[in-house]
Amino acid sequence: MAKAKGKVTFDEARCKGCGLCVTVCPVGIIKLDTSRINVKGYHPATVDEMDKCIGCANCATMCPDVIISVERE
């Protein structure tokens, strides 16, 4: 069975870098980008390997600042 394909979008400027999304991603693709800081002064959450995203919305469910939107095929 082919895995569902998903896509997450972060409203990066509103991210507070709390990292809760990182801990709940079942495919482990979210990380805090320590090479950058956003306008709030935090390392924003980001995804490099979006093709691995399954669109489960765990990250968005856990995000306290409601900055993540999720799409799925």
């Binding site: 507070k16 990292g19 935090y42 469910t61 995000c63 306290p64 409601v66 999720v70 799409e71 095929e73």
Partner: peptide, 25 residues
């Protein structure tokens, strides 16, 4: 792709003032 998670109309556009990781949000 279909949107499966988006911000609810039940919240305003105002950013939460809560500390990072506070579960109030």
């Amino acid at each position: 792709m279909a949107v499966v998670f988006n911000k609810t109309q039940g919240l305003t556009e105002k950013e939460f003032h809560y500390c990072p990781g506070c579960t109030h949000g």
